[in-house]
Amino acid sequence: MAWLVLVVSGVLEAVWAVALDRSQGFTRWGPSLLFVVALAASMAGLALALRTLPVGTAYAVWVAIGAVGTALYGMAALGEPVTAARLLCLLLVVAGVVGLKITS
């Protein structure tokens, strides 16, 4: 159950990162509110997962899900460049986190 909570929290990290960008410096109410709610839920989920998971592994997984998710969203929805190098770098992030999970 802790892993499921951690994955959902990582996805919420990507949500709050995108909402933060869309808030335009907290000048837009909708994205600003989404940012606050997603941030609080993401942190609460991480805290809950840390009750049973090792902090180093859990934090790395949480950050990686958020970072990779945000980057993929940027490429898919915001017109950010999709290059082989960028995709390879994201794959390396995922590989590193999988390696941490396997060896913990």
Score class of each variant (00 low, 15 high):
16 W>M: 06
16 W>I: 05
17 A>Y: 08
17 A>Q: 02
18 V>S: 07
18 V>T: 11
19 A>W: 02
19 A>G: 00
19 A>V: 00
21 D>K: 12
21 D>C: 00
22 R>C: 07
22 R>S: 12
23 S>G: 04
23 S>Y: 00
24 Q>A: 15
26 F>M: 11
27 T>P: 03
28 R>T: 03
28 R>D: 02
28 R>V: 07
28 R>C: 01
29 W>L: 15
33 L>C: 11
33 L>P: 05
35 F>M: 08
36 V>D: 02
37 V>D: 09
38 A>L: 02
39 L>Q: 07
39 L>Y: 09
40 A>S: 13
40 A>W: 06
41 A>I: 06
41 A>G: 06
42 S>L: 02
42 S>N: 10
44 A>H: 10
45 G>C: 03
45 G>K: 04
45 G>E: 03
46 L>T: 01
47 A>E: 11
48 L>G: 05
48 L>P: 02
49 A>L: 03
49 A>H: 07
50 L>R: 11
50 L>E: 09
51 R>A: 05
51 R>M: 06
52 T>S: 15
53 L>I: 01
54 P>D: 13
54 P>M: 09
54 P>I: 11
55 V>Q: 11
55 V>W: 08
56 G>W: 11
56 G>H: 09
56 G>A: 15
57 T>M: 14
57 T>L: 13
58 A>C: 04
59 Y>N: 07
59 Y>I: 00
60 A>G: 07
60 A>M: 10
61 V>P: 08
61 V>C: 04
62 W>K: 07
62 W>G: 08
62 W>I: 00
63 V>Q: 00
63 V>R: 02
65 I>C: 04
66 G>D: 01
67 A>R: 01
67 A>W: 00
68 V>E: 00
69 G>K: 00
69 G>T: 09
70 T>L: 08
71 A>G: 03
72 L>F: 05
72 L>W: 01
72 L>P: 06
72 L>I: 12
74 G>C: 09
76 A>M: 15
76 A>L: 15
77 A>V: 14
78 L>I: 10
78 L>D: 14
78 L>Q: 15
79 G>C: 12
79 G>R: 12
80 E>M: 06
81 P>Y: 08
81 P>A: 13
81 P>Q: 08
81 P>R: 11
83 T>V: 11
84 A>W: 15
85 A>R: 14
85 A>Q: 14
85 A>W: 12
86 R>W: 11
88 L>F: 15
89 C>R: 09
90 L>D: 09
90 L>Y: 09
90 L>V: 11
90 L>S: 08
92 L>A: 11
93 V>K: 02
93 V>R: 05
93 V>E: 03
